[in-house]
Design a protein around this nucleic acid. Sequence first.
RNA 1: GUCCCCGUAGUUCAACGGAUAGAACAAGGGUUUCCUAAACCUUAGAUACAGGUUCGAUUCCUGUCGGGGACGCCA
Length: 576
Amino acid sequence: MSATIADILAARLNKALPESPFAADLPEGFVAQVDQAQNRQFGDYQSNAAMILAKQVKRNPREVAAAIIEAFDGGEVSEAPEIAGPGFINFRLKTTFLEEKLSQLLADEEKLGVPVAEKPLTIVADFSAPNVAKPMHVGHIRSTIIGDSLTRIADFLGHEVIADNHIGDWGTQFGMILWGWKNLLNEEALESDPIPELLRIYREVNARTKDDESLREDCKNELVELQGGNEENLAIWERCIDLSKIGLQKIYDRLDINFDLWLGESFYNDRLAPLVESLLAAAIAEESDGAICVFFPDEKQLADKPALIRKSDGGFLYATTDLATIDYRIEELKADAIWYVVGAPQQLHFDQIFRIAKQRGQKADLQFIPFGSILGKDRKMLRTRSGDTVQLADVLDEAVERALKIVDEKNPDFSDEEKQEIAEIIGIGSVKYAELSQYRMTDYIFDWDTMLALKGNTAPYLINAYVRTRAIFRKLGSDFVKEGEPTLTADAEKDLTLKLAQFAETVPAVLSDFRPNTLATYLYELAVAYHRFWEACPVLKEEGAVRETRLALCELTGRVLRCGLGLLGIRTTEKM
RNA sequence: GUCCCCGUAGUUCAACGGAUAGAACAAGGGUUUCCUAAACCUUAGAUACAGGUUCGAUUCCUGUCGGGGACGCCA
């Protein structure tokens, strides 16, 4: 039941190979692939098997294709395949097969045809991970949104996913914050809105340290006191974290994002010293210039790039915490895989700690899932410290505001609450879709109009397609009830049905290279197919089987859009 | 100096070695007795450069140019 169309065709194609005249020359273990056709004029699915085989069996590709087709049995599934171009084998699905598919998909309300993973894994997903005491800015948007989407997709495919927010709650920035808290804090401002006040003192101190050697020293001492367990400093630190978490949670609530765990850097403090000792004992790490390092002499690329795990003053580093985190996730959380949705600049760091983990015998599948940078107008990476970055909360506010304007314009008769609710869904959805619809490695320059666009290939286009499916049933006055078997007549119906069936092929493919944009593209194409169907095929005017079939298509499109958008973390609305 | 990522229509983005490189925005033309026109139809427009690998290259390899980034005591 859960086999995809591509799987079904591939199975039939591979059954044909040993029956063809060149069966004896077939390379050991050759498996023919079948893919969605790139251009519908060539059919629904295609295979390049003949062109690959042609070389091995020393025959003309078109001859090979002809021989394969001869032995191929399309059964209930496919019409007789055609050979085209240099030797493509093109498949066209039988209408009766599409009708059967449509019935099956309607019956699979939960998974909509998507096959679940054969081997469910326990996956720890590490994303977002903001520093406390600073508000999230646009730079955090990528990790947060991409990580959340991958988490939702893995969960949907049957994996056990643990979303862990590895917040930066123990860095050197606390030296500055502690000093600022003691010397510059405005209690009133802190009471009314804590995060901006924490940011203000951080920036103030940071600016002052630029040309004040003794202040730098004072900040460092505050940090040493904190790390040494000074009670006053610990109390301030804890308060700081609590306030920050409240602020962060507000944003996550608005984004509809949940974490199972919030194990920040401080959680691993007690594990760092023993970890370094064990690395020394295992002769993986060694002393160098007073610091403890791990060298990678066997790797050309890393030969001159050691990882530092303990400073000469005894302090621990980023790599140390991350190694301890890996241990915890594997040993305590029983992770089979750990996914890090982190900016591309950290490539070297993760390369290093993954190697060290491997040297220590850790078996889990460690995945660095990088994304490109968001640049300022000067084409440079955005920096928190420069102070001119746009805050994430402001982006969301602006997005909702822009959406509200249009909602108001288009639907003056909706109530204010309704308008606000819809604007929230569309505004936030647009920000997420803008991010998820492009390849994650692409760098981009932050631009309000690009990120908050509401026209064209954007969230509202997809949400509108969903809204149109709901409009039908609102007019009908009842929910969908399946009656009889579907009958596909119009081309727009067949195109839409095929698209709907391909949801099953799209979702698992996202995880093969962690590319939510492939799902976004699919959903856009599905929406296009539905809008075309809408124009070409009236539903409620029709009668009998045609009407039933069209209602079924509306229903299923609605389900797939809602589910698929949900996997991107985007909510839908019934009206807009 | 070493290494990593990126270079596609005027602009913002697609295309996990496949056929005639897809969209959207911006520009031009059209569609509303019909279930939401936030829609549909339609016109024009691009792979930085030079080699190589192969049946086939935007994709892989080498080099050049251009942009961003990382590299022993920040995270």
